[in-house]
Design a protein around this nucleic acid. Structure first.
Lengths: 121, 121
DNA sequence: TCATTATGTGGTAATATTGCCACGTAAATG
DNA sequence: CATTTACGTGGCAATATTACCACATAATGA
């Protein structure tokens, strides 16, 4: 049960990590290809340091990866699943769908979630 | 382009709507069945009004639906796709997966509900 | 070495979120 | 009608988030 709550918080943390217009867009951009900070920053009108902090935040959550390349720091999407997850959210928003049981964006084998049993443990 | 930004914000809003431990859990609970506020509130240790506000917030976003039933107000999951989306996030968190590009985050079969006992606090 | 370019950090003011309390309302019941 | 039960709202204090500015650091090249 305590473990269950912890899981909830971790999931919420990841979601929170992409629940922001800027971070959302960064994830979508990085889903296409690796990019350096300056390149990512050019996508927005915000201060470069603001973008830098968003990147740090996502890296801290394990959403992104980064590597040094000369003067640049290249960022890439680590949790690739999030890309399709966002496509799913987009469909929801666009279609204002209520029943997407027919559509799909997803994590194919999302069938067995037996770990919920631990809840009472 | 302006339209694109608007879309980003809408997607972020939906994600934000479920990027909270309490709301996350509510969505997962409602994915299994419709529940009244008092029932939902029992899942947590927070004040009932706090839960009520979380529910209002999600209803406002179109994530949940509600209907009056006598003294009760029954809430249900409107954006059913979110259920499987959360399963996807859970897998990410649990497995710390790095490459789920092979998997799919389908919003399809979100039916398997292993009964999640009620709280027994 | 010095200047330049690409990034990250600390500090901070403006905002937004969260949760509780005090009430107010609606439906069911006696 | 009075009570009880189930919900929602307004208000507010404690936090958390966001974005900017001022700097500090690393790599690169003249």
């Amino acid at each position: 049960m305590k473990k269950q709550e912890k899981l909830q918080e971790e999931k919420a943390a990841i979601l929170k990590g992409i629940a922001h217009p800027v971070r959302l867009r960064v994830v979508e951009a990085l889903a296409k290809r690796e990019m350096c900070v300056c390149e990512i920053a050019e996508l927005f009108n915000f201060d470069r340091t603001t973008i830098s902090k968003h990147l740090s935040l996502m890296k801290g959550l394990g959403i992104l990866d980064s590597r040094k390349d000369g003067l640049n720091v290249m960022y890439s999407l680590r949790m690739k699943c999030l890309a399709s997850l966002l496509s799913c959210v987009e469909k929801v928003v666009l279609g204002q769908e209520v029943d997407m049981s027919a559509l799909f964006c997803g994590c194919g084998s999302l069938s067995n979630n037996d770990r919920e049993e631990e809840l009472n443990a």
